[in-house]
Amino acid sequence: MRVYISASNLPLISGKQGQFIPKGTIVIANVWHLNRNCEAYGEDAEHFNPARHLDGDGRVAPGPVDTKEESHFTYGFGRRICVGRHVANDSLFIDIAMMLWAMNIERLTDADGKPTHLEVDDCINDGLVV
């Protein structure tokens, strides 16, 4: 619920018609919804698929101009887009490359050697996770 609570309870401005927004209105974007829009990302928008960001030749495809070519809305948009996005992108790039170069990330196995149950949407709110 911590993660998904934002997916449904924000009032939405319809994209189909004009909407008057009075001065002083607080505007909150539903980034989660934008990032999982099936019209933009296809029917597998709910799934993790890095290849969706590549073109037919295996190169990184330019993202939509509206996203400053990020291909998602996590950094915000427009003039106020996250100023640290390049640092974040570079950090994630080298972190992911280093980790996957150095190790395999695998599911836990039980006493019988079978992979334990995995629930992608679960979260751990306390304690130490190693």
């Binding site: 993660v3 934002s6 997916a7 924000l10 401005i13 994209g15 189909k16 018609q17 004009g18 909407q19 008057f20 927004i21 009075p22 001065k23 002083g24 209105t25 607080i26 505007v27 909150i28 974007a29 539903n30 980034v31 989660w32 990032n35 990302y41 799934h47 993790f48 698929n49 890095p50 290849a51 969706r52 960001h53 590549l54 990184v60 993202g63 990020e70 291909s71 998602h72 809305f73 996590t74 950094y75 915000g76 106020r80 992108n89 994630l92 790039f93 992911i96 490359a97 996957l100």
Partner: peptide, 30 residues
């Protein structure tokens, strides 16, 4: 790997509602 960076940020954004913004003058969306 670069696609993984984009996809990780898209799939599970750290902040799924972003930062609130305030409209500084009357305006129309669309």
């Amino acid at each position: 790997i670069r696609g993984m960076v984009k996809e990780a940020l898209r799939w599970h954004p750290i902040d799924p509602v972003g930062l609130p913004h305030r409209v500084i003058q009357d305006d129309w969306y669309k």
